[in-house]
Amino acid sequence: MTAQAYDAPALDDLLWVADEVWHALLGEEEGLDRLDHPRDMSGGPVETVWSAGVSISGTWQGNVTVELGTTAAVALTARMLALGPGEAVADADLADAIGELVNMIGGNVKSLMPGPSMLSLPMVAAGRAAHSSDSVEALRFDAAWRGEPIRFSVHVPRS
């Protein structure tokens, strides 16, 4: 986990938001385990990493990103759509599900920061999130769900 030196939500607030979203989307019995030592998010030879992000622009500016592997993304999508065992998860549904996940977290981050500001529509891609050189990671925490790593981060303009 990283603590911020920039104008960003408090780490505890981001943790709280992520927990609340997780429980609301997946059920009270599903929890995030916080990892003090981040796991490799680069993806192995068969495991693709998915990333989803929203940007907030206005009085406060920043980008909120979630990254997770295909195993976690497929399980999360199946859970959100209440799919039965063996039902296939389409890429479009997977992108929709993790886009909605980051939309919820981003919307709550926006509410925590000074306004007025605008929340973008979510962007989802297969691959690690790339951030421009004029932004800096202000906040990050690594977690695991069902043993699979998930990373939440907030990037802000470099001052």
């Binding site: 609340e20 609301a24 939309n103 919820m104 977290i105 919307g107 926006k110 306004g115 007025p116």
Partner: peptide
């Protein structure tokens, strides 16, 4: 909506919305 700030609630109410349920709900 995922945006449940007082500002958004005020905008919703002034536009004629009956309520705003914030995600996660």
């Amino acid at each position: 909506t995922s945006e449940g700030s007082e500002e958004m609630r005020a905008r919703a109410a002034s536009a004629g919305a009956a309520f705003l349920i914030a995600k996660p709900f």
